[in-house]
Amino acid sequence: MSETILDLKNAAIYQRESLILSEVDVTVNKGEFVYLIGKTGTGKSSFMKTLYGDLPLTEGEGTIVDYNLRTLKEKDIPYLRRKLGVVFQDFKLLTDRNIKDNLLFVLKATGWKDQKAMDHKIDEVLDKVGMKSKGFKFPYQLSGGEQQRVAIARALLNDPELILADEPTGNLDPQTSVEVMEVLQDISKNGNTILMATHDYALLLKYPSKTLKCDGQRVFEVVQKSV
C-alpha cells in the first residue's frame, strides 16, 4: 500500500575520493517522518547532498521521487529539485530580495506563469508557517526562526513529494527549534514526507518517529530507546 519515495540499495557516498558512507540501505515511504541522526562529521549532510543531486551517487542503486540517482544527468537536477523541498541549516534565502520575491523567484523559476495563482500560493505557504504578514521584509530583517519558517514555506511551494531538511534547527535556540519543529510536524500531518537530519536529540524525544543513525560509515535504523 505504501508508496516508496526514496530507496537506496547498497549505496556508497563519497566526498570527492574519500568514502563517507557505505552499504547504505534506506527506504522512505510516502507520508513518513524520518529522522537522520548522528554526530557532526558522520555524513548526514553528504547523505542529504546526494539525495538532492549536489553529490553524485557513484556506487550502488538509488531512486528518489522516480529519479534514478545513478543515471541522474546534470540537466535533470533542476527538475529533481522541483519535486523535493530542501531546507538548510543556514536557511539559504536570497538575501538580495524580500520574502515575497524570494518565493516568487522559486515559482517563476519552476515554470509558474499566472500572477494570481502565484500570489495565492505564496499567501498559502506563508500562512502555513505563520509568516503571512512578513512578506515585505528582507531576510536580514528577520530572526533566525522566522527565516527558517520562510525557508520551509519555500520548500512547500511546489507541493514536494519529499522534504529534505538538513539540520533545520541547527542554528536556532531550543525554544525556536520547537516552534520550527511544530511547523514541520504540522506539515507531516498533512501527508507530506519529511526526511530530517538533526543532532538535536531533545527534539527526537519530544517528537518520536522513525530514526536512522549515521555512525562508522554506516546508516542503520535505531529504536528510540537506544538513542
Binding site: Y52, D54, R82, L93, T95, D96, A109, T110
Partner: peptide, 18 residues
C-alpha cells in the same frame, strides 16, 4: 553573488533561468 546563484540552483531553477 555566487552563493545566491547556488541557492537558486538548490530550489530547482535551471541554469538558463538563473
Amino acid at each position: 553573488k555566487r552563493f545566491i546563484i547556488k541557492t537558486m540552483q538548490m530550489v530547482g531553477a535551471t541554469k538558463g533561468f538563473i
